[in-house]
């Protein structure tokens, strides 16, 4: 295992309001090695975006954050506003889901690509920053970058805007790049182009990557390891190939069974797989296993909190069941 860039142990986030409190993240552990690409996968309400927002200090004011231990780039950290603000846009950069709302419609792309670098390189001249921006823009596959720098966001297509946003994140030379659903808003052929750009970047930069997505396909394409979240907890983590081929947690197994392979032979009268039931209400979290209500392998023990299990190949999962 390479040296860790980011280590978080026992991360808890809850919101308080109207006399009630909702627990959004419950004991999340995440580790990202230097140069490593980690996928955070889960369905709506799993807390995957909350993890990303916690790292960036972008949670709402009524959020209460605590962690057993947190370190970034060799230093221990807390998630106080001042600490996360100093990392944001310098050591940690984010590619947001919707490239239209991430860009300011009132300024040219060039201006925005220059301004984003000001905090990182306060002494550089505008001319130098402009030249850097142009080079990176060309690098992420925007043709005719010099002329495009003078254009406004609305003059770009969705795929091009996403490249601009990726260029923006790269310009600050972050140690950690967080991509939150980077291709969800894009068409399939454009998604393939953006995936290719991200692939190329991975080979060229030493930055670590955290890809947050509901799409197991995207994680499989971009990541070395994956963290599977459900209801605000990590249920399983490990190398992508291991988790995909030998999921240990019943939730991961059920989730992968829901994936459709259009090339596989199938019986048309057979129902598609689903996971019956609903995601637990964060204001009323169950005491024991978070997935117990929907788990096909539930038994009496699941009323208690399940133990962390470590398989020999580095795969971790949280379940009462022993590996068969």
């Amino acid at each position: 295992m390479t040296e860790a860039l980011l280590t978080i142990e026992n991360l808890n986030v809850s919101y308080r309001g109207n006399g009630r409190s909702a627990h959004i993240l419950d004991g999340v552990d995440i580790k990202i090695g230097r140069g490593q690409s980690v996928g955070l996968v889960g369905e709506s309400g799993s807390g995957k975006s909350t993890v990303a927002f916690t790292l960036l200090g972008l949670l709402a004011d009524n959020a209460e954050v605590s962690a057993g231990y947190a370190a970034f780039d060799g230093r221990t950290r807390n998630f106080a506003a001042r600490e996360t603000a100093s990392l944001r846009g310098t050591d940690i950069a984010m590619v947001f889901q919707d490239p239209m709302t991430a860009l300011n419609p009132m300024f040219t792309i060039g201006t925005q690509l220059v301004d984003i670098q000001r905090r990182r390189f306060p002494r550089e001249s505008r001319k130098a920053l402009w030249a850097r921006a142009e080079a990176v823009l060309a690098d992420v596959g925007v043709q005719d970058a010099a002329a495009r720098m003078h254009r406004y966001p609305h003059e770009f297509s969705g795929g091009m805007r996403q490249r601009v946003v990726i260029a923006m994140a790269l310009l600050v030379e972050p140690k950690l790049l967080i991509a939150d659903e980077p291709t969800t808003a894009l068409d399939a052929t454009i998604e393939a182009q953006v995936v290719e750009v991200l692939h190329r970047l991975r080979q060229r930069t030493s930055a670590s990557m955290l890809v947050v997505s509901h799409s197991m396909g995207l994680i499989a394409e971009l990541c070395d390891s994956v963290v599977v979240m459900y209801g605000g907890t990590v249920v399983e983590s490990g190398k992508v190939a291991d988790v995909l081929h030998r999921p240990r947690h019943p939730y991961t197994q059920a989730l992968l069974a829901c994936e459709i392979d259009p090339y596989a032979a199938f019986d048309p009268s057979q129902d598609l797989a689903t996971i019956p039931g609903n995601v637990p209400d964060p204001a009323r979290r169950p005491q024991g296993c978070i997935f117990a209500d929907r788990c096909p392998a539930r038994h009496d023990r699941c009323r208690e909190r399940p133990p962390q299990r470590h398989a020999r190949d580095g795969q971790n999962y949280s379940c009462w069941l022993e590996v068969a």
Binding site: A188, T189, I190, V195
Partner: peptide, 25 residues
């Protein structure tokens, strides 16, 4: 063929046959 190959897949073998189209609609 390009559209179908662009579909993200869990099958690493099929990923290698991807045709990435240049440009946009």
């Amino acid at each position: 063929r390009a559209l179908l190959s662009a579909n993200l897949t869990l099958d690493a073998g099929r990923r290698r046959e991807r045709i990435v189209l240049s440009g946009e609609l």
